[in-house]
Design a protein around this nucleic acid. Structure first.
Lengths: 273, 273
DNA sequence: CGAGTTCCGTGCGCCACCGAACACAAACAA
DNA sequence: TTGTTTGTGTTCGGTGGCGCACGGAACTCG
C-alpha cells in the first residue's frame, strides 16, 4: 500500500506496466531523503532522478542577495530531475529535501534510455513535466498577488497533500525561507491560524486540525494546481488496476471544435475593470 | 535573413535538418499575430502550435480577482503550445499576443506526430521546454524579491531580445498588466529611467537609448534566463550551418564526476546570514 | 473643428510587509 | 547543574506598493 519502502508508493512508478517494470526494478535504488540534502544544484550535472515515496523535495531559487524562493514541491506524485530527459542535464534551481522521507533513484543515463524506449514512460514523465510547470507558473502569479496569510495556507495544503498524516514537521523559519518572506511574518500568520483553531503549533511541528478551514483561508492557487495534477497524472496507487484505465484514457489526445480567436482585450483591462 | 516571412527566422524551425524540413514545409501555415489575439485559453483544447518569427507572445495567468500576471514571453526563439507535445492538450494559462508580428502555425496532431517521429524535433522542443520552465521559475522568484523598477528593466530587456530594433510598442498600462502591478507604478518607474536618459517614452512607444544602463538597473533575473536560453537552444539563424554544430554538440549529454551530497544548511539560513 | 477616447503624469492616505532588536522558553550538551 | 543552541513571540519605526482621484495631453473620428 502506501509503504515508503514500496516503489509503487510513487504514483509515477505505480503507473508503469508489467512490461516496463522489470527494466526499472533492476535499476531503481532505495535512498533515504534527509532534511537539507541537496539532490541537485545549479550548474552541477545531475546524476540521478529521484522518485520520492514519502517526504517532500523543494525546488528553489537562490538569488544573488541570498534570499530564497521556492517555486515548486515534489512528493510521491512526481520525480525530481526533469532536466535529465528534457535535455539540459542541469537547471538553475536547487532541489533540496524539505521533509525527510524515502524514495528511489535511477541513474541519469537509465532514465534517458527509458524515456526514449518506452512510450508510456515518456507519456508519464512529460505529463508530469507539464503539471510541474503549472505549479511553478501558479507560484509566480501567487507571489505577485496574494497575501502572506493566504500563501501560508496554500503552502500547508501542498505539504498536506504529500504527507501521510495531518502534521508537517517544519520550523516557521523554514516556511519563511520557502515563501521568501520574513520569519516574523510567518509567526504572525500561523498565530492567527492557531487562534482560529485551524492548526496547532509546537516547535517545528504544525498539526492541521481543520483542513477545510485552511482551504477557505487560502488563495485559489492550491486548488488550481491540484486540479491540474489530478487531470494530468494517474491517481493514488490505492488500486493499481485503476492505472490501466488512466493509461487507456490518456493515450488518446483530447479533441475539440473550438478555434483560436481574438478576445476583445480582456486582460488589457484587468486593472481597470 | 531575419525576414518575418521566412520560417527560418524562428530559431527552432531554423534548426531543423534538410531531412525534417520537407515534412514541416507542407504543414506550416503563415499567420499574422495581432495584438491581443488569444492563441490559447485555459481549458480550451489547443488546435495549433505557433512559431513566431516576429512579435512577442505573452503567457499569463488571470486570477479570480481579475488581476493578471505574466509568467513568460515567447518570441522567435520558441514555440507557443508546449502542452500539445507534453500531453495535456490545454493549460491553465493564457497565451496572448503582446506585440504584433508574424509567425507560422502547425496543427496539433502534426506537431505531436513530428515530436514522436523525429529525434531532433523532440530534442529541440524538450530543450525549449526546459528553457521556458526556467524563465517561469525565475519570474516566480523575481516577483517575490525584486522592486518594480528592476522588474521593469528586466521586462524591457526580455522584450528587446525579441524585437528587431531598440523600440518596443506597448503602453505603460500593458506593461503594468504584464507585471501585475499598478499602471502608476510603471509610470513612475519609466519616469525615473527617462530622467536618467536611459529610455525615451512617447504614447505607447518606448525607445531604449542605453541598453547597458538598463542592464545595470535590472535584477539578475534577465541575465540568468538569457544565459540558460543560450545554453539550451540553437543561436540566431544568422549562419544556418552553425546549427549543425549545435546539433552535434547537443545530442551527447554532458558527463560529470560530481555526486549528490548534503549541503550544510545553506538555504535554511538564507535570511539570517 | 469639436467631442470623445486613450494614454500619461501627479498627489495623497493607507497598509502589508520589511528590517532590526529583544525576550523567552524548550531542547540539548557538557 | 549550567551554559548553549534552537525555535517562537513581540515590538516599533520605515517604506514600497496599493487604491483612488484628478487633470492634462495626444490621438481619433464624426
Amino acid at each position: 500500500m502506501a509503504c515508503p519502502e514500496d516503489p509503487k508508493s510513487n504514483r509515477l512508478l505505480a503507473a508503469l506496466t508489467d512490461a516496463d517494470w522489470p527494466h526499472w526494478r533492476r535499476h531503481l535504488e532505495s535512498v533515504d531523503l534527509r532534511v537539507g540534502q541537496a539532490l541537485y544544484e545549479p550548474g552541477r550535472p545531475q546524476l540521478y532522478a529521484y522518485f520520492p515515496t514519502s517526504g517532500i523535495v523543494s525546488l528553489l531559487y537562490l538569488m544573488g542577495s541570498g534570499a530564497s524562493s521556492e517555486v515548486a514541491v515534489v512528493g510521491n506524485e512526481g520525480v525530481v530531475g526533469t532536466s535529465l530527459f528534457l535535455g539540459g542535464g542541469t537547471t538553475t534551481s536547487h532541489g533540496s529535501v524539505l521533509i525527510a522521507g524515502q524514495g528511489f533513484r535511477i541513474g541519469a543515463q537509465m532514465i534517458r534510455d527509458e524515456f526514449e524506449r518506452s512510450d508510456l514512460v515518456r507519456l508519464l514523465l512529460l505529463r508530469y513535466t507539464q503539471a510541474l510547470t503549472t505549479q511553478i507558473a501558479q507560484t509566480a502569479a501567487c507571489n505577485r498577488h496574494h497575501a502572506i496569510d493566504q500563501q501560508v495556507c496554500g503552502w500547508l495544503l501542498h505539504s498536506l497533500d504529500r504527507v501521510r498524516d495531518c502534521e508537517v514537521v517544519v520550523t516557521q523559519q523554514l516556511i519563511a525561507s520557502m515563501l521568501g518572506v520574513r520569519r516574523e511574518s510567518v509567526t504572525e500568520a500561523v498565530g492567527r491560524l492557531q487562534a482560529a483553531g485551524l492548526i496547532h503549533c509546537a516547535r517545528g511541528h504544525i498539526s492541521v486540525l481543520d483542513r477545510a478551514g485552511i482551504e477557505r483561508r487560502s488563495c485559489e492557487c492550491h486548488a488550481v494546481v491540484k486540479k491540474e495534477y489530478d487531470r494530468l497524472l494517474p491517481q493514488e496507487p490505492a488500486a493499481h488496476p485503476a492505472n490501466a484505465a488512466w493509461r487507456a484514457g490518456m493515450t488518446q489526445p483530447p479533441s475539440s471544435t473550438a478555434s483560436a480567436r481574438t478576445v476583445g482585450s480582456r486582460y488589457h483591462r484587468a486593472h481597470s475593470c
